[in-house]
Simulated scan of single mutants.
Amino acid sequence: MVDKNLKKIILENDIDIIIPVPLNKKRLLSRGFNQVSFILDILNIEYSKIVRVKNTKHMSLLLDKNMRKHNISKAFYIPIDINKKNILIIDDIITTGSTIKEIIKELKISGTPKSITIFTFSMAHSYKKSF
Rank of each mutant, 00 (worst) to 15 (best):
G111Y: 09
H70W: 01
I18S: 05
K128V: 08
F33D: 00
N24L: 03
I90R: 11
M59N: 11
L43P: 13
S122Q: 06
I100M: 01
D14M: 08
N13L: 05
L6D: 06
A124V: 06
F121P: 12
K49D: 07
S122I: 06
K57Q: 06
S48I: 07
K7M: 00
K69Y: 06
I72K: 05
S37K: 15
D91P: 12
S98P: 07
D14A: 11
V2N: 11
I39V: 14
L88C: 14
R31A: 10
D81M: 11
S126T: 14
T96P: 14
N44I: 04
I87A: 06
K108R: 15
I116V: 09
K114P: 11
I90P: 13
I90W: 09
F131S: 12
S60T: 01
R31F: 13
T56W: 02
N5K: 14
L28A: 03
K26T: 14
K128W: 10
K54R: 08
Y127A: 10
N5S: 12
N71R: 01
T96F: 03
L61Y: 13
K84H: 15
L23K: 02
S110K: 15
I9W: 05
K25C: 02
T120A: 14
K114Q: 07
D81L: 11
K7I: 11
N71C: 03
L61C: 06
F119Y: 11
I39W: 15
K69I: 07
R68T: 08
V2D: 09
D3R: 13
T112V: 14
E12M: 09
K74R: 13
E102V: 00
F38S: 15
I104N: 01
F38W: 11
R31K: 15
Y77R: 09
E12K: 10
M59D: 02
E106S: 03
M1L: 08
K101L: 06
K85W: 07
V36Q: 07
L40Q: 13
I116P: 12
V21H: 00
G111L: 04
G97I: 02
A75Y: 00
I103D: 00
I39G: 14
K74V: 03
V21M: 03
D16I: 00
D91E: 07
M67C: 07
S48F: 15
I18Y: 07
I42V: 10
K129M: 12
P20K: 05
L29P: 12
F33W: 05
